[in-house]
Design a protein around this nucleic acid. Sequence first.
DNA 1: AACACACTCAACCGCAACAGC
DNA 2: CGCTGTTGCGGTTGAGTGTGT
Length: 236
Amino acid sequence: MEVMVQNMGWGVKEGGWRKGPWTAEEDKLLVRYVKLHGEGKWNNVARLAGLKRNGKSCRLRWVNYLRPDLKRGRITPHEERIILELHGRWGNRWSAIARSLPGRTDNEIKNYWRTHFKKNAKVSSENPEKLRAHLLRRERLQLQQKQKQQEDQINVKKVVSFLDESETKVPTLAQMKQEILYQHASDELGFLYSMTNGYPTGSEASNEDILWDGLWNLDDFLGIIANQHTLVANFH
DNA sequence: AACACACTCAACCGCAACAGC
DNA sequence: CGCTGTTGCGGTTGAGTGTGT
């Protein structure tokens, strides 16, 4: 890796700092540092963790890649709507938008918007043929995503029926199911409300917290459920 | 199969805001 | 109050990969 990095012209030291793609070893050192010292004080990382990276680079690597609460995978259509909506309101305030999408980074959202929407605007004015091809392509991709979502829904049904079976055995699971279903429903309603009636005024931040708070991916949910499943299995 | 184009992602840079002295 | 170091943000770049022709 080190060799490859150097061949690519990366990994060159500038003022003593390494640059370019991170190695697994560097990641390990950074993670260990954060575990021991917490986030922040990034300029101490080089000294305390033995990394030859400047603080800025370490922070970026942590925030955009190593943080444990990051959500992996493609932006969902639901998230896409939120990005569009919030970008319409706030403009390029990526970090603010990212705060409304738990598990997504400003970098990720910025990248997504630039490739999908900024280009669209340019393409449409320049060449309608290109735009049509572009839209067709996107439509196909969305179709694929939709199919995946349907599979996810089937999985949710399986999980819910599992919970139904387990309710009598483990009462807390019944509670959990109720909360999850309620939260999912209120998210949808909240979003629809905001789309049709405009945005709440007054204590905006707290209202929005409620509105966006339940956007965690189904994967996370299924992960929790899987853990619960193991617990129940072990319990019996 | 080869090429061109589109898309994704990680990483860098410059600048501004903030905190501490 | 001004200086300095640190942190956070937005813009940009470039490599790698996927897809269409």
